[in-house]
């Protein structure tokens, strides 16, 4: 029986089949590049991570055991590469397993503005999207990577836990903190937009 994972033939990938590997690169390079770019905020570093991820994947595919999805495996390689770059940039400051107290803790919601009634086009405008991106950039790395994998790359809690070597509980806690912080940041922005619109200025 031919063993396939996500529409790829494992036997061919493990045997170093270039055409099959090329299909794998086509399928996942956009996601890997986006993740790296959002983690690092630096196009050159993101490109390095993209290249290194697929170079390592090609070298190590023969050892891929097929227990996780190929995409999860690729995300794990990419995340490790990106974290390594971040640690090199700021030694001693980037850690996934030793959260800095006060950096990750829960905080009570301060922004109580109901901006849900804003028109969709207001929330999807180019300017709004810039704020959505900027809000992610304000998250500490340990929360940001969890949010990116769960809510942007659409991995499950279990897959995210596998990628990061965390428990599912830790993933859920960090996702919750990330989302609550983003909610605060978006509430500040959209709350302003709401005022502008009510004053007839928007």
């Amino acid at each position: 029986m031919v063993e396939t994972v996500e529409d790829f033939t494992l036997e061919a990938l493990r045997a170093g089949d270039r055409a099959e590997f090329s299909r794998l690169v086509e399928a996942y390079s956009a996601n890997i590049y986006r993740l790296a770019l959002r983690m690092l905020n630096q196009p050159q570093d993101a490109e390095d991570v993209l290249q290194e991820t697929f170079l390592k994947a090609f070298r190590h595919l023969k050892n891929f055991d097929g227990r996780s999805k190929l995409s999860t495996w690729l995300f794990r390689i990419a995340t490790n590469e990106a974290l390594m770059l971040l640690r090199r940039r700021r030694p001693g400051q980037v850690s996934l397993d030793e959260p800095v107290m006060g950096d990750e803790g829960d905080q009570e919601p301060l922004q109580i503005v109901d901006w849900c009634c804003l028109p969709e086009k207001e929330m999807m405008s180019q300017e709004a999207r810039k704020h959505l991106d900027a809000a992610i950039d304000q998250l500490p790395h340990s929360l940001r990577v969890v949010f990116l994998l769960r809510d942007i790359e659409d991995l499950s809690t279990l897959e995210t836990a596998e990628v990061l070597g965390l428990s599912e509980t830790a993933v859920k806690t960090r996702l919750s903190r990330a989302r609550m912080r983003l909610r605060e940041l978006l509430s500040a922005y959209f709350g302003e937009r709401l005022l502008v619109m009510r004053d007839g200025g928007g």
Partner: peptide, 28 residues
């Protein structure tokens, strides 16, 4: 409600953009 909307907005705007052609060329 605003938390639900926050998650929703990120989901709907998260379509992956293609890798810029130059970058893809260098990757291949």
């Amino acid at each position: 409600d605003t938390l639900r909307k926050t998650v929703y907005l990120y989901h709907v705007t998260a379509r992956p953009e293609p890798v810029p052609d130059e970058i893809k060329q260098r990757l291949f």
